[in-house]
Structure formats: C-alpha cells, structure tokens
Design a protein around this nucleic acid. Structure first.
Length: 195
DNA sequence: CCCTGATTCGC
DNA sequence: GCGAATCAGG
C-alpha cells in the first residue's frame, strides 16, 4: 500500500469522522489491519476500543520484559458516537447525515437496525452546518420538492470543494445506485473489497 | 456467530 | 514502514 499524502489524508479524515477501521479500510480498498496499523503509526487518536491489552503472554514467546504499565490513563468518559449508523432501511428515504457532532441533548430516535449486527453504511455525516446542500434532508417545505440527491460525501468536509454526490438516489435510499452499493454492504460479503 | 479495535512481528 | 496474524472485548 502506497501511503501517499492523499491516502493518509483520507485515512485521517475517515478516522476523525469516527468510522470503524474496517469501514475505512473498505472505503480505501485496504484491510482494516492496514488502517489500524497506519493509524497507530501515525499516532492517530485511538477511538473507543473495547480491548485493553495489558499483558500478553502468548504468541511467539518472546516475552520481552514489558515495561511496567503506569496505568494512569485519563479516564475520559466520553460518549463516543458509534460509527455504526443505522442502516437506512427504506423508511427514512432521506435520513442521512445524522449530525452527530451537534450537541444533541436529547437522544435522537435512532432507527433500530435489523436483528442482525447491522453494519454501518459508512454514514457520511455532514458538518454541523451543511450551509448549502443537504437541504432536502430536512426541508420542511412540502411544496418545493427538490429533486433528491445522493448525499455521499465527496472530498474532505470543511474544505472548499467538498460536496455531495448529488446524483439521483435510488428510490427510498439516500444514495445513488453507485454509492448505495458501497454504503450498504452485505454483512457477510463485505470482507472482500468492492474493487 | 458476528462485530470491533490493538498489538505484535515478519517482511 | 507496512500489514497479516493474532489477540481480545462486546
């Protein structure tokens, strides 16, 4: 994998966005390991990981004298928004970009996912203030039905040039056929890359 | 079973 | 530096 500045930027972007490593990997056409590995190497802020590897004592022997764990990590009990966005079934035709960034005092009623471990459709969240675009998602105006547009994020949010796909989405889906394909990944088959 | 991320280690 | 293998918790 050639980590160019661009790919790294992409990684950082997605990482900062809170996407799961596997998710990032999928979108970057690499494995999650690569993502994690690189992220770690880049010293990217680790996201809530359930695992805490204190002692190893296992694989390949090599029990190198581990340094004493200071165990003085700052317990930042932050309610990290899981990247696991609800799979837009078909009801919320335009339920994309749930602005997790916004200080929502009241928990928005998140659509329950299927019984299965519904995967995150890599929910592209827009910035707190979409400014332009994205109007159709919360357009209270019943009159002017702006043509639905695919809200797959293109580019880096916050930077000029960032925009949404804008293509005609699938019926009942916030994304166009092209992006819906990668947004709604099969639970079992998504191991393989879309390529 | 599935998911997730973290670390280790051979390359 | 890279990432597969492995570990490990939900």
């Amino acid at each position: 994998m050639e980590w160019t500045d661009e790919t790294i930027a992409r990684l950082k972007e997605l990482w900062a966005e809170g996407l799961s490593t596997a998710e990032i990997g999928r979108r970057l056409s690499i494995t999650k390991n690569a993502v994690v590995g690189k992220a770690h190497r880049l010293s990217l802020p680790p996201r809530p990981s359930p695992i805490r590897r204190s002692d190893k004592t296992k694989v390949a022997g090599t029990e190198t004298a581990a340094k004493a764990a200071p165990a003085v990590a700052a317990p930042a009990k932050e309610k990290a928004p899981q990247a696991t966005a609800p799979v837009a079934d078909s009801k919320p035709a335009v339920a994309a970009a749930p602005a997790v960034d916004a200080p929502a005092p009241k928990p928005a009623p998140q659509p329950k996912a299927e019984a299965k471990p519904a995967k995150a459709p890599a929910a592209p969240r827009a910035s707190a203030k979409p400014k332009t675009s994205l109007r159709s998602i919360s357009d209270p105006e019943p009159k002017k039905r702006r043509g639905p547009s695919c809200c797959w994020p293109i580019g880096d949010p916050g930077t000029p040039g960032f925009h949404f796909c804008g293509a005609t989405p699938l019926p009942g889906k916030p994304y166009c056929a092209e992006h819906a394909q990668i947004a709604y990944v099969k639970l079992r088959d998504r191991r393989d890359n879309v390529a």
